[in-house]
C-alpha cells in the first residue's frame, strides 16, 4: 500500500512538471526539450528563497512558478517564437542548446552539488494508518496536483482563454481572422507551461533532488508523459503520470536490477502501438 501511495505521489509530481510540456509540446507542437530547464529554474529559485532569504515555503513555491513563467515569456518573445514554423529537428537542436546553457549557468552559480532543502515543519512527518504510512508532504503533493489538474482542465475547456488557445492551435490563420490575438495567446500558454514547470521543480526538490544535471536527467520522463498521455490532454497527462510514477516506484522497489529499463521499454512500445498516445485524439494536422 505504501508503495502505491508513494507511486501516486511521484506520479503527481511528474504530472506537475510535465503538464507544462503537454501544453507546449502537445498543444503548441513545439518540441521543447528544455522544459526541464524551466523546472530547474523554479527549483533553484525556491531553494534560494528558502535558504538565503528565509521566505516561507508556501510563498517560495509560487514565486518559483512566477520566475519560471517570466523567463518563459522573455524567451518565447525573443527566441522560441521564431521557431514555431521550423522543423522538429531545428526545435530539438535549439532546445538542446538551451539545455546546455542552463546546465552550465546553474553550475557556474550554484556548483555541482545537490541543493540542500529543508521542508517546513508542518509538511514533515507521517501519518501512520494500519498498513499505510502516509508522508504528509506526499499527501500535500497529491492534493496540489489534483487541484491543478481540475483547474487546468476547467481552464482549457470552460474559459475564454482555453477556447482561444484551442482555436489558435488548431488553425492559427482562422483564429487570427476571428480577432484572436494568436501571438498573445501563445505567449501566455508558453508562460503557463513554463510556470507549471517551475512550480513542479520547486515542489520536486524534496523527491527528485536538484543539481545542474536536472534538465537532462528527467527529460525522458517528461517526454514519456506527453507521449503516453496524448497531446495537450490534461486528463491523459494525469493518468500517464500516475501510471509512470507507480511503475517507477514499484519497479525500483521490486526489481531494482532492472531499474529504469522498464520505463523506456514502456515508452517505446507505447509510441509504436499508439503514436497518438493513450488518450490522444487523432492529430489535427
Amino acid at each position: 500500500m505504501t508503495i502505491i501511495f508513494d507511486g501516486l505521489a511521484a506520479g503527481m509530481l511528474l504530472f506537475l512538471i510535465s503538464v507544462g510540456l503537454s501544453v507546449t509540446l502537445g498543444l503548441m507542437n513545439f518540441v521543447n526539450l528544455a522544459h526541464g530547464a524551466f523546472a530547474m529554474l523554479g527549483g533553484y529559485t525556491c531553494a534560494l528563497l528558502l535558504s538565503r532569504l528565509g521566505v516561507p515555503f508556501l510563498l517560495a513555491a509560487p514565486a518559483a512558478a512566477a520566475t519560471a513563467a517570466l523567463a518563459g515569456i522573455i524567451l518565447e518573445r525573443t527566441l522560441y517564437r521564431r521557431l514555431y514554423a521550423a522543423t522538429h529537428l531545428d526545435q530539438v537542436l535549439f532546445s538542446i542548446g538551451l539545455i546546455f546553457m542552463s546546465i552550465s549557468t546553474a553550475h557556474y552559480f550554484f556548483g555541482a552539488t545537490q541543493q540542500a532543502f529543508v521542508l517546513p515543519d508542518f509538511l514533515k512527518g507521517q501519518i501512520n494508518l494500519p498498513g499505510l504510512d502516509v508522508g504528509i508532504y506526499r499527501l500535500f503533493l497529491i492534493v496540489v496536483g489534483l487541484i491543478l489538474a481540475v483547474g487546468l482542465q476547467w481552464m482549457v475547456s470552460h474559459t475564454r482563454f482555453g477556447a482561444e488557445l484551442r482555436a489558435a492551435v488548431d488553425n492559427p490563420r482562422a483564429a487570427r481572422g476571428l480577432g484572436i490575438n494568436v501571438d498573445r495567446v501563445f505567449t501566455l500558454a508558453f508562460a503557463l507551461g513554463s510556470g507549471l514547470a517551475g512550480l513542479g521543480g520547486a515542489l520536486g526538490i524534496e523527491m527528485l533532488g536538484l543539481d545542474p544535471g536536472f534538465p537532462v536527467k528527467y527529460i525522458v520522463y517528461f517526454l514519456i508523459v506527453v507521449a503516453v498521455g496524448g497531446s495537450g490532454n490534461i486528463k491523459g497527462s494525469l493518468l500517464a503520470s500516475l501510471m509512470l510514477g507507480l511503475f517507477d516506484v514499484a519497479g525500483k522497489y521490486y526489481l531494482p536490477q532492472v531499474g529504469a529499463f522498464v520505463i523506456y521499454a514502456v515508452m517505446v512500445v507505447m509510441l509504436i502501438v499508439r503514436p497518438q498516445g493513450l488518450f490522444g485524439r487523432a492529430a489535427a494536422k
Partner: peptide
C-alpha cells in the same frame, strides 16, 4: 565551454 556550445547551437 558548455555554455558557449549551447549558445552556438541556438
Amino acid at each position: 565551454w558548455q555554455f558557449w556550445l549551447g549558445a552556438a547551437l541556438v
